[in-house]
Amino acid sequence: MDWEKLQHIDIRILYVIILVCLLIPMFKPIGLPIAISDATRQVYETIENLPDGSVIWVSHDTGPGNAPELNPMITALARQAFRKNCKIIATAFFNETVGPTLVYTHINEVAEEMGKEYGVDWINLGYRINADATMKLMVENIAEGALGVDWQGEPLDKFPIMQEVKSIRDDVDLLFVTTVGSPGYSDWMQYVAEPLNKPLTGGASLTMYSGLQHYIRSGQLKGFLGGLRGAAEYELLVGAPGKGCAGMDAQSLGHVTIIVFLILGNIGYFAAKKQRQQETY
């Protein structure tokens, strides 16, 4: 047998198999149980322990690529926050074109369902260039950092929520940040959470998970939602399974496919090596 072939399967076959494995669960969900991690539970409990009516700052710092991982986190957060009658101030500092729309869509969907009103219970301040400087300005004066308008250019003076929430320093109780890079947790910690001693929590794409663990261990990050898995776990804790849970079966089959191909590649590698040695002798 030519074991070399096992190491060089046509890449198009590999792509088709991955695609099929990702598609199958979408049409026929398997419904595997999802274990809840300590980091996700900590996020849920941090928010749950806030007094009713607290103000949560939500920054959805993502672009279209990572949105499927992070959007379910925002939906679940909005559900948990509004259930506790918390107010939400939203921003989106990563992507000018898509971030503000994403955060609006996902919070608004829950807000409408739960009878919460834009401008009264929550507001979207959208994107502002140079996140670091904007954060620093908003610490003392949110309106100044937002240039006096919300994401649609409406003056902030007309919204009742902005009469109550003037600065992050005095009026915000918790920061919930979903990020894919920069601005990231280090920016929020450096300019807002640490100087003001505000609790910071949230989630990020799974690729960032390993790089943020030390912040969780040090207590600077109050728990963490790691990628789609974290979003799915959070949805379960909030009691509203959504797109995060729906994507878990596809993730399971996708990971298993990669592992199967890793095993095949290694079997081919060792078998071919042994074959070559036998031919030499």
Partner: peptide, 22 residues
Amino acid sequence: DSAVYALLGFYVCSAAYRSFKL
């Protein structure tokens, strides 16, 4: 943007298969 990011999954799988050897 979404499509390019999604393609990464396929590339990662292919790269892992070809290069992850013991």
